[in-house]
Structures are given as structure tokens and as C-alpha cells.
Design a protein around this nucleic acid. Structure first.
Lengths: 335, 335
DNA sequence: AACTCTATCTGAATCGATTCAAGCTCGTTT
DNA sequence: AAACGAGCTTGAATCGATTCAGATAGAGTT
């Protein structure tokens, strides 16, 4: 029932080899043959059997994307970028969200190896070194997404988090804020420490005196943001910071939710608030959130491009691609 | 270099047929052979070549999931549910987000056919009948997700949107609201018309007199919600509704953002607000959003299970699975 | 006319897992 | 002792696209 290349060959009156050539190197085939084969394919509704192709030619047409934190909409955009690039190469994306569960991770690694994916993209969560070791062992070209990692031996595509942290705090200082709190954690996440480092640099280099306090959180979730905000509000009012820099937008959204006092939102008048990622919900918050934008789609596109290059040339040297972040000013730091 | 079943056979001192049997029907093989083959596989780090398997046995180990509206985090959860179920069957998910772009859709259909996916899940956007026809033609078992569709000839897994609409408006009425506006559109989206129908039913069956007005939107996005909210506020204050039922949470989040007057949030005191989906950001809004929860993960799991069943038995009759929605009360309708 | 090239085409061999008809062992039955 | 059958194992054939050595035709050269 299913239509094979043989059927196409018969219909077009050529050999299977020619059909294959039309499909793979049309320039080495007479235009007459191309014409007839193309038409036969059309008429029969032939679709190439990727399994046979993969088996014989050893080329894979899928790339695995493992997202370790699927709840974060930022990664959604990254995936979207990777998809764009992938489909332009005729490649499909095998998607796996592990929610930081090592057993799920193993499942996906095995599945992806069975599928012989061309390469693997990982969007990390917390400390990924153990995971990286496992991925490394699989022998598949792998690129880290949204995580700078010069030492790991993997290529990576990320944003300069230090610069982002600096941008955020400089913006707060320019807005007249002097008592700034950095909200984020845990501190084994590279994103967190980098953003904090940038914040510190900005505070220290400021022309005026700025206090920078650190409010640690256990995770980068909305819930943790809510909790951190509630904790801040238990302080006497005069000890409140006048600005908060959240290590990502989920935290910031949680903070925003907590920063209500006497039925009145404290943001931005009493307390300015800025997040990181510029996820689609930052703009959509009740008080639109200022944030540090990461070029998420571009990150995804680039990561996919690099992983394909590495798959093509296993000798290639891992390289770190770093994009600059961008300050997006909205109401939460205004006024 | 790569390790094949033949290498395993040699190492274990058995034939390739026996290795294959160990892999696929261990109960028909002596425990001695199972033991030795298992060990050989372990020692060599053998991973089954899925392409060869697929080619010969015709079984596919992937399912395609086409999301037509990838920006909506609700679908993220649905995908997560499908993933859960899939990985327990050793199946990987090919993910494709089309953002309602027909050309991308064609790309994915072709890719998925080449991959010979076992089945296809579609999360719709707007009027999908044209798309469905294309999918149908591909001859792949297909299940509609989050869309009841008795007439299309496809199985579907969805939530009773009419009941959901009723729940929402009953809740508003119980809270003392009498001038309710339904915000949503376009009206070729089944979800929209169903939710509105439920809202109407609740308004008409109420013991008290309730006005139900319809505020149409061009899409179900945050931006459209903001615009609709702004439009409402241009009316003289006495003509404001006292409650809004948004057809999904994205609209509701947009509305919430607009419903600020004199630096004061009108929600919930002046205007109650309820959404639909209970997406993860509903709880995280500055005023936590009441919503109608859909069991998103369960929808994904069920859809995957059904598509596998249909792939196994092409004669099976399409069936519509409908889950009940659940009212989630938070601050946006309280007080 | 013989020869060389180039452009194009052909079809058998191949990739690795699965399948299945045939074969083997050994205990049981007659 | 022969016949039988249960339980396992074997290995060649197979799936469909790709590859590549060899074939063929036609143009150009001497």
C-alpha cells in the first residue's frame, strides 16, 4: 500500500537510482528526468521513508531539545527559535521536558539515542554538570542553551548575564533608587550569580552611594517570588528597599503580587521592580514589568545552527556564543 | 564503530534472532539467553537502532504534536501530560508550533509523514476545518486536543466549555454581580462560542435579573485583553459592567492590566474578573485570577493514549472525551 | 573512423532489526 | 525403541532509500 521509491521509478520510467538522485542531487540529473520524477512523486503522493534513509545514509533528520524547566515560558520562545531554524533544514525537533527529574532525563536520553538524533540542545536548570557528563557520554553533539559554560567542553549560546545585571541596576540608580535588593537563588545557578555580579558592579561603580542587599530564594518560581515579597513587607516600613531586581521574571511576577499594602500596589511609587528574561508575561503584568530582554528566538536559532555544524564536523572546537542583553523599560520602574 | 545487534549476538554467543527475541519477546527465550544477552548489551553499551526497527517492523516510536498557538502556556501543560504518557510507552514527541501559519503547518505535516509518526495530536486555533482536511489526507491517526468536535470524524479530548462558562457566570452572580460582560472572540473559535453559551445559560437561569453583554475581541491574546479593557474604561463610569468573564486567561490578564483607574486597581472591588484555563500565570497575577480550570495534563495524557489506540486499530470509531471543568476562586472575584 | 570525455543512467549491494520457516534437544508417551 | 511435541534457537529474507561501480550515449577531437 505505501508508495516507495520503486513505484515512483516505474511511474517515471527511470531507475530507483535516478529517483534518489533527483531527491538528493538534482543538479546531477537531466532536467528531463527531474521533471518526470517530480511529476510522478506528485501524482503518487510519495513521501520519502525517513527510516530507510536514516538507516542507509546514516543521516538523521531530528534534533533533541531537552528543557529542564518547562514551566518557564522563556524557554518556549527559545524552542520556537530552534524550530524555525530546524524546519528550514528539514529537521524536526524531538521535545523533552524533564522538570529537573533525573529519571525522566535518562528516559529521554535513551529515546533520543535510539532515534539517533543529529544533535542535542539542553536548556539547563541549576547545576547541570552531572547531567552534562551523562550527555557527553552519549557521544551526540550537544549545545548548552542559555548558559555560558566555557569549562564544560560544550558549546553554548547564552546572554551576557553580568552585563544584564549591570543594566538593570544602572537603570534603577538612574531612576533615583538607592536601596536596592537583589532577589534570587539558588546560588548554584550560574544565571543567578552572574546577574548578581553585574548588579554589584553597577552599585559599586555608581557615582552615588547605593546599598545593595541580597534576598535569597530557593528557586526561580512565582511562588518563591511571592514568599520573598511577603518577607520583605514584614519589615518596618523604613527598612524597605526602594527597588527590587529579580533574577528572573517569574520571581518578579511573584514579588509584584506580594507588593500590595493597604489595597495599594507599592510598585512603582514606593518600590521599583525589574525582572530578567522579558518573558511574554512581563509586559502583561498588572503593572507592566521592566525587564532585561534576552533574544530568546535568536538564542534558539543559533543553538540549532551550531549543533548542526558540530554534528557535521565532530572535530570542531566548542565555542561560546554570547548575546548582549537589552533593557526594556516599562511602568514597574517608572514614575 | 556503532554497535549493532550482530555484535551483541557474537558477544553473547547466540544468533541475531535470539537477541531480537530477547529485546521484543523475552518470555519466549530461555532465561539463560536473556541473561547473557542482557549482559552483552550492558557491556557493549548497545542501543537499538530505531531506524532499522521502524523500517522492518513498521512500528513507529514517535508521535507528532502540532500546537497551533504556542504562546499559550496552557498548551505547555497539555504537552507535558502527553509527554508523560508517551515516555511510559517508549515514545518520543515531535513538537511543532505553527503559530497559526499554514505554511509552517505544511512543513510539519511533511516532516511528520517522513518520520512516519505513529499518530498526530493537534491543539487548534480558530477554525481548524481546513487544517483537519489536510491532516485527514495524511492517513495518520489524529486526535484533536482541547476542542470538542463530534462532526469532524476525529477523536477529541476536551473540556465541557459550556459547563465552564456556566460555572464562571454562576460564580459571578453568587458574588452579587448583575451586569456581566463576556469578553472574547473571534466567534469562529468553538471554545469562545461554547463558553459564551454557558454564560448565557447561567444568566438566563439565574434567580435574579442579570444583564449579559458581549465584548468581542479579535483574538485570545493579552494584547487584545488590554485593548478591550481600555475600551470599556472609556465609557461613563455608570455604564461599566460590574464583572467580566474573559474567554481565556490571556485575555483576563490583559484586562486586569487595563483595569486601573486613578492609580487604583478596579479589580475586584469595582469589577470582578474571571478567566478560563487556569494557566500558571493566572495564580501569579498581581490580583490572583479566578479561573475555570481545565485538567491540562490529563487532557494531554488522554489524547496520547487515544491516538495510540487508534493507531493500533484503524477501524476504531472516533470518540469524544470530555472532562468537567473546575471553578478556581481567587481574589479577582473576591471581596 | 577511432578515440576521449562528459553527462547521465542503471541496478545490485548495503544499512540493522525483525520475522519466520526450519532445525535441534530432550523429555514423555506408546 | 520409535514417535511425538514442547521449548528454544538459527539464519536467510526482508523493509526502502542510498551508493557507487559500471554501462551507455552523444559531443568533441585528432
Amino acid at each position: 500500500m505505501p508508495i516507495s521509491i520503486r513505484d515512483v521509478a516505474v511511474r517515471a520510467g527511470v531507475s530507483v537510482g535516478t529517483v534518489s538522485n533527483v531527491l538528493n542531487r538534482p543538479d546531477e540529473v537531466s532536467s528531463d528526468s527531474v521533471e518526470r520524477v517530480t511529476q510522478a512523486i506528485e501524482e503518487l503522493g510519495y513521501v520519502r521513508n525517513d527510516a530507510a534513509r536514516k538507516l542507509r545514509a546514516g543521516v538523521s533528520t531530528t534534533v533533541g531539545f531537552v528543557v529542564l524547566d518547562g514551566q518557564n515560558p522563556f524557554y518556549n520562545d527559545v524552542v520556537r527559535g530552534a524550530e524555525d531554524e530546524a524546519s528550514s533544514h528539514g529537521i524536526a525537533i524531538l521535545y523533552g521536558n524533564t522538570d529537573d527529574d533525573p529519571s525522566r532525563e535518562k528516559v529521554y536520553l535513551d529515546l533520543f539515542r535510539e532515534q539517533q538524533v543529529r544533535g542535542l540542545l539542553i536548556a539547563p536548570y541549576g547545576d547541570v554538570m552531572t547531567q552534562l557528563r551523562r550527555f557527553r557520554a552519549s557521544g551526540i553533539a550537544t549545545v548548552l542553551v542559555d548558559r555560558f559554560s566555557a569549562d564544560s567542553g560544550f558549546s553554548s549560546v547564552s546572554v551576557d548575564s553580568v552585563a544584564g545585571g549591570r543594566l538593570a541596576v544602572e537603570h534603577l540608580i538612574e531612576g533615583g533608587r538607592r536601596r536596592i535588593a537583589f532577589v534570587g537563588g539558588p546560588f548554584d545557578m550560574r544565571q543567578v550569580t552572574d546577574r548578581l555580579a553585574g548588579a554589584r558592579a553597577a552599585a559599586e561603580n555608581a557615582a552615588v552611594h547605593v546599598e545593595l542587599e541580597v534576598v535569597p530564594t530557593a528557586a526561580m518560581t512565582v511562588e518563591e517570588g511571592v514568599a520573598a515579597g511577603a518577607r520583605l513587607l514584614t519589615r518596618p516600613r523604613r527598612e524597605w528597599p526602594d527597588a527590587l531586581f529579580a533574577a528572573n521574571d517569574l520571581l518578579a511576577l511573584g514579588l509584584l503580587q506580594s507588593l500590595v499594602s493597604g489595597g495599594r500596589l507599592l510598585v512603582p511609587d514606593e518600590i521599583a521592580l525589574i525582572g530578567f528574561d522579558d518573558n511574554p508575561f512581563a509586559a502583561a503584568a498588572a503593572v507592566p514589568l521592566s525587564s532585561i530582554r534576552q533574544p530568546s528566538r535568536m538564542i534558539g536559532r543559533t543553538a540549532l545552527r551550531i549543533v548542526l555544524e558540530e554534528a557535521a564536523d565532530p572535530e570542531s572546537i566548542p565555542r561560546q556564543t554570547v548575546f548582549p542583553p537589552e533593557l526594556i523599560v516599562r511602568s514597574s520602574t517608572g514614575g
